[in-house]
Nucleic acid binder design. Structure first.
Lengths: 338, 338
DNA sequence: ACACTCTATGTAAACGTTTGCATAAAGGCA
DNA sequence: TGCCTTTATGCAAACGTTTACATAGAGTGT
């Protein structure tokens, strides 16, 4: 016989039915105060532990939300997680997290797990250019799914993000305004990732607007990482005619680039300007402090969580498109070109 | 009637019993190849989705492991998450994550959630000095729980960590060997956190060993963060007789300290040496690159995951104590005192 | 006293699996 | 052929909740 405390046991102790116990837990206002008190007392005294699996099964619905991120090492994910949980805290939702490593096999697998575990909603950071199948499967599945940190043109997918194109445009424009003409680009794998591709496009558009010809020689696509940024920068600075300014479309790339410059004897910003992207927290603590584009990571994640909770609770599934503003954070890594 | 594909439906389609479907999924070798094939075919064709809640309820056991971290912004957490998932990947376990913010109310709440959701095991980073109640509740609960990133003296709790005392001792010793006598300390909230307190003790012990008197004036306890590190360093360098070397017992504190020094016109390491703790990835990319203590974060998390999975699968719950080696990573932020 | 409405509770059928036990079919051996 | 073992499958009871529906009792207005 089960020696485990379940609702039945509590019900027996108090002398009420299981239903009453369930109600005291889920809608306390619907049970008489005296009864409620007795039930709560028994729960306390006998260390009853609510069984979510059973509830989930019965309700055909969980209070777990799935969070899909490409790389847990990205500082941006930290903000996302904190924001999401801040919002979920008092609601008794839990977070199930999956790290895709930019690998679509892993991603599909994780999504399947989420589906089997019947998560109530999904928050996904970033969206691959190649994910129409994914999109379809989520649609069919029918639970709310919000992409964050990205502005999508796809009208069928909700997002809370920012305009990567515009932000990259303004970063590049800033460099141009400072008089730079030879502006290098170090950027993540944009062949696969939409939000990165948008940055490349923004960069190109800004150049074009000022009649500067895009020069593929000083534009490097690489994985996002400190070392990768450093390596890319080394290559750029080894060129016979190195760029006078660099747009590193991720702060971690920028930090790597900064290091390469320093090691090669270039002064930043006197010899070469560097602008980053993301305003991760160390950016302000670099030497020199990094001029960068601030993206509203925390707000995006927070907003997305609010929205998704709303959808879950009201059982709706409309499409939301929120685009937040980015801003240029001017610090000391860029200077007028003389 | 349910239009949702469940085992019953698959069973009906194939013309077998539910049990057979369940078995094809959970122990394929126990069903005849032909039957298996037909079942799998039907599962494929009708997009059957396994319901974990139901399975969990029936089995009285889940395949979810709970991960408790104090601050998702700490880079160390990123490694942990990646390591854990790398290990869980092919096993179909999922990760439920909770961010405690160093707040024991939140922590208790999250643990309760984990308990209600019936997680199969818990990996917890760090352990508060004040958590004997917590310890008791986990013991009673009876699921495997491993603390990582910490060496505990408590024989009832499993850990996979490193010796914070020893690591801090060696960092301080290194500074002493370089001829420093006036060695400041910037450290996290050690009143609450064991692993941080150990660092303070290691620092003090190293001083004592060399007959250097501990000076509370140049020892600052603060929250862990870049800005906090900077503020603490400002205070230290404003002293009439500032320290000639600083042990910042967290790399993020060290990076903040580095910034303060630079802004105040101190050269690192010429005017003041700084040694960090953790070897987070940006440490090597600071200016100057940060000398620091490397702690084996990934290995710890990976080992812990292996152990916990072992315990879950074999239904054992023995206590493990693994202590991994730390190492001194000498870069350019410390120099001989003249 | 009656009919009516409310409110608090109980009853019991789901929810979709797992798994011990029973059984039928097939194979081996005398 | 009959008996025994093995293998593949089915049966049905659990797992611990939720919730639509039923019901009993209390209150209200006439």
């Amino acid at each position: 016989m089960s020696n485990h405390t379940d609702m039945k046991k509590i019900a027996d102790i108090v002398g009420v039915s299981i239903a009453t116990v369930s109600r005291t837990i889920n809608s306390p206002e619907s049970v008489r105060p005296l009864t409620r008190k007795k039930v709560l007392r028994a729960i306390e005294d006998h260390q009853y532990i609510y069984n979510s699996s059973a509830a989930d099964l019965s309700r055909k619905k969980t209070t777990v939300i799935g969070v899909l991120i490409p790389d847990a090492q990205m500082p941006m994910f930290g903000s996302a997680l904190v924001a999401i949980q801040d919002n979920l805290q008092e609601k008794n939702y839990s977070i199930m997290v999956g790290n895709t490593k930019y690998n679509s096999n892993i991603e599909v697998k994780l999504l399947k797990q989420f589906q089997q575990r019947n998560v109530a909603g999904i928050i996904k950071t970033g969206f691959d250019a190649t994910q129409s199948t994914l999109e379809k499967s989520i649609k069919e599945w029918g639970i709310p799914c919000i992409v964050i940190f990205e502005k999508l043109q796809n009208p069928n997918i909700s997002y809370v993000g920012f305009d990567n194109y515009k932000a990259a445009f303004s970063a590049t424009q800033y460099l141009i305004e400072l008089g730079h003409k030879r502006i290098g680009l170090i950027v993540g794998p944009y062949t696969k990732q939409m939000r990165i591709r948008k940055r490349v496009e923004g960069y190109k558009a800004a150049l074009e607007e000022s009649n500067i010809k895009f020069n593929p020689e000083i534009s490097i696509e690489t994985n996002v990482g400190l070392l990768e940024g450093k390596n890319a920068m080394s290559r750029l600075l080894s060129l016979p005619e190195p760029p006078t300014a660099i747009f590193a479309a991720a702060d971690r790339l920028a930090i790597g680039a900064l290091r390469a410059a320093t090691e090669m004897g270039f002064c930043v910003p006197e010899d070469v300007s560097i602008i980053g992207y993301g305003d991760i927290d160390v950016a302000a603590f670099c030497n020199p402090p990094l001029t960068t584009v601030r993206t509203p990571n925390y707000s995006c994640a927070r907003k997305a969580t609010e929205l998704i909770i709303g959808q879950i609770e009201n059982n709706t599934n409309t499409i939301f498109h929120y685009c937040m503003e980015t801003s240029l954070i001017i610090r000391d890594s860029c200077i007028q070109y003389k």
